[in-house]
Design a protein around this nucleic acid. Structure first.
Length: 473
RNA sequence: UCCUUGGUAGCUCAGCUGGUUAGAGCACAUGACUGUUAAUCAUGGGGUCACUGGUUCGAGCCCAGUCCGAGGAGCCA
């Protein structure tokens, strides 16, 4: 007898063969003659039904088959006599490996996502989170596959950084100093020279600058790893610890950059539609059910599966920031913030643009003053070669740019923006020694998963979310 | 961080204008039932009304503060 994955057994036609499954009980039903145990092992969203003849299995054993218990079940694979499933196991042996008493918080009913966040150590055992975690895996794999197939090299950017000038937000300090009694300089400031690295260090907020260094040697590279922002952001789209994927391409201009980003997104969405069918169908129904609880005007006009298919089928709309502002100004809608050339697009503006064009929108050529120092200046001297990809429900999915490769212009920009140039000497040297045109972008992985799964809070698409005032589990 | 909103049984929620012993469904326990599909039916146990203080003859309900959650905004991915 061989233990098998439920995903295999549900597809099997080896009726009459003895098989075994190992997993966790989702529900038990029955009467005094027969019991039905639904078992899930995580290999698929579905359960397999084990049929137990009560004259063969002691009642004492069956008593401990409770929701959440871990069981090993052996039996004969058979075509089901019931309606709900095609395959089932006629149980010959049943072993309770892990008891689960009535204090187990997951019940045979729907729970709110808020409650499940409080029991994040148990929520992978729900259908919803099982589906999300499987999809999350497949999406990470699809990203690696996409880039590998295109000849990119996966670069491991450092998690600990000594650079304090990346300008992407508040950082988490990394130190081994005694917080209660740190060594101090004569002026009272903390003496970082005595710290582990001999200087102030932090957790990375981006792997981009390191990726640029590697692109100057390997040509096409990407990073994919955890990223940390100590911002006090309390929104459904922000985490203090999230995963970011950042490709960096030598000899790509902004257009090639956009082409790559668009084809990558289409590739991974298509991959999900093909490889995560069962999970997506479950989440599709889940989203429809959830929608019914909302007010009429807040309900979505499309289903999750329709939105995913639409991304694959349609080209993204590409407009410049200046054109975008013009669209917003002529819009038949009152904005809380008036669209004005020079100020950043507000959430309501992004939403309007995406809604207006009905497809993901790539906005390019933003005013230089609202973008990062490393973006390439356009001939007009006012705008930079930035590109943001805006998605329905999500907002900014990708942010990228062509990089400024001219040493003098980049140096001037660093000065202009009062950035600590000493800590960026190594970065500037890429422009000094064989500088090259290049581009790249950053993709927030959780935001991608949000879009793919139809969930609405990033805290529900990462196993153990870290947010302000919350680092449980 | 700001604005809005919420915290009542293990879970989801009701609780009227401040008035007797705080309710329901699910879950759980016991029993019934010859194949169930979140099985069904009957019976039963289960409460620091987030916390602290105040107003009142009387507070789940009113007031103040604190903690925590959610939504929106900002920051961003």
């Amino acid at each position: 007898m061989e233990y098998r994955k439920i995903s295999d057994l549900l597809k099997s036609t080896e009726f009459g063969k003895e098989v075994g499954v190992r997993g966790w009980v989702r529900t038990k039903r029955g009467n005094k003659n027969v019991a039905f145990i639904a078992v899930n092992d995580g290999s698929v969203i579905h359960t397999i039904q084990a049929v137990v003849d009560l004259s063969k299995i002691p009642e004492e054993t069956l008593k401990h088959v409770t929701t959440g218990a871990c069981v090993y079940i052996t039996g004969i694979l058979a075509q089901s006599q019931g309606q709900g499933q095609s395959v089932e196991i006629q149980t010959t042996a049943l072993e309770i490996v892990g008891l689960c008493d009535e204090t187990f918080p997951l019940q045979k009913k729907a729970h709110t996502l808020e409650f499940l966040r409080e029991i994040a150590h148990l929520r992978p055992r729900t259908n919803t989170f099982g589906a999300i975690l499987r999809i999350r895996h497949h999406m990470a794999f699809a990203i690696h596959k996409f880039f590998n197939d295109k000849g990119f090299f996966y670069l491991h950017a450092p998690i600990i950084t000594g650079s304090d000038a990346e300008g992407a937000g508040e950082m988490f300090r990394v130190t081994t100093l005694d917080m209660n009694n740190p060594p101090r300089n004569t002026d009272g400031s903390v003496d970082d020279k005595q710290d582990f690295f001999g200087k102030e260090t932090n957790l990375t907020v981006s792997g981009q600058l390191q990726a640029e260094l590697a692109a100057a040697a390997l040509g096409l590279v990407y990073t994919f790893g955890p990223t940390f922002r100590a911002e006090n952001s309390n929104t459904p789209r922000h985490l203090a610890e999230f995963w970011m994927m950042e490709p960096e391409m030598a000899f790509y201009d902004i257009t090639a950059n956009m082409d790559l980003a668009e084809s990558m997104l289409k590739y991974v969405v298509q991959y999900a539609l093909e490889k995560c069918k069962d999970d997506l169908e479950f989440l599709n129904i889940r989203a429809i059910e959830e929608d019914k609880t909302k007010k009429q005007n807040e309900r979505s006009k499309t289903t999750l599966l329709e939105r995913l298919q639409a991304v694959v089928d349609h080209s993204f709309k590409r407009i410049t920031y200046t054109e975008g502002i013009a669209v917003l100004k002529s819009a038949d809608k009152k904005f809380e913030f008036k669209p004005e050339w020079g100020s950043d697009l507000q959430k309501e503006h992004e939403n309007y643009l995406v809604d207006h064009f009905g497809v993901p929108v790539i906005v390019t050529d933003y005013p230089k003053d609202i973008k990062a120092f490393y973006m390439k200046l356009n001939e007009d001297g006012k705008t930079v070669r930035a590109m943001d990809i805006l998605f329905p429900y999500i907002g900014e999915m990708i942010g990228g740019s062509q990089r400024e490769e001219n040493y003098d212009k980049l140096y001037a920009r660093i000065k202009e923006m009062h950035i600590h140039e000493e800590s960026l000497g190594w970065y500037l040297e890429t422009r000094k020694f064989g500088t090259f045109p290049h581009s790249g972008f950053g993709l927030g992985f959780e935001r991608l998963i949000l879009f793919i799964t139809g969930m609405s809070n990033v805290r529900d698409v990462i196993p153990f979310p870290r947010t302000p005032k919350n680092a449980e589990f």
